[in-house]
């Protein structure tokens, strides 16, 4: 474990908690892409199947359970508890355009042609594009509440910190996970446009982000 990965995991946790609390307290999921949240729940489900087969550390196990519980709880809030506030017409991204290529690629490019390994690879590729429905929804509605932009900021920052973690691990222990690194770079690039708007608009206290 290194400081970059720890900070990354904390940013990830903060992002997920920000979103959950926003929906829970405002009793509304307006402006939130349910599709992205379903994709994230799928990412955690396919990645954390080793929860019962391989023990790495208490931290690893606890965080996996926390991420799974919060991901499914958020999906529950959107599609069941506060479904009347869900903007399904704005959340119109065709997720099959993500799932099919990601599933195909995970069969083609993986470390081992074994069920758990292919599911892990699927989760890595899927995570890199899972935020697209949310970013698409924001471009469609032309705006995002500031709390939603803080959620996206921490979510984008988490994988950027993981890139630093991989540089650190490469130089200190020769660790190099090519699939995770390439996907992590792609994932972080998707946030660049958002980061620009976030720093130029939201942090200038203009409240919510309105797209040009």
């Amino acid at each position: 474990m290194n400081i970059f990965r720890l900070l990354g995991d904390m940013c990830h946790l903060v992002a997920i908690i920000i979103l959950f609390l926003k929906i829970w307290r405002s009793k509304s999921c307006a402006g939130i892409s349910g599709k992205s949240q379903v994709l994230f729940a799928l990412v955690f489900t396919t990645r954390y199947l080793d929860l019962f087969t391989s023990f790495i550390s208490v931290y690893n196990t606890v965080m996996k359970v926390v991420f799974l519980v919060l991901a499914y709880a958020t999906v529950y809030l959107i599609y069941l508890r506060f479904r009347s506030t869900y903007n399904s017409e704005s959340d119109s991204f065709r997720v099959e355009f993500l799932l099919v290529p990601v599933a195909g690629l995970s069969f083609l490019e993986n470390y081992a042609f074994a069920p758990l390994e292919i599911l892990w690879t699927f989760s890595i590729y899927l995570e890199s594009v899972a935020i697209l429905p949310q970013l698409f929804m924001i471009t469609k509605t032309g705006e995002a509440e500031s709390i939603t932009t803080h959620y996206l900021f921490f979510l984008g920052l988490y994988r950027a910190l993981y890139l630093a973690n991989w540089v650190w691990r490469y130089h200190t222990e020769g660790f190099f996970d090519q699939i995770a690194v390439v996907s992590g770079v792609v994932q972080t690039i998707f946030y660049c446009d958002f980061f620009y708007l976030y720093f130029t608009k939201v942090l200038r206290g203009s409240g919510k982000m309105t797209l040009p």
Partner: peptide
């Protein structure tokens, strides 16, 4: 494809 790192990250 490269070696199969033990997936010790979240």
């Amino acid at each position: 494809s490269s070696e199969n790192p033990r997936h010790d990250e979240l």
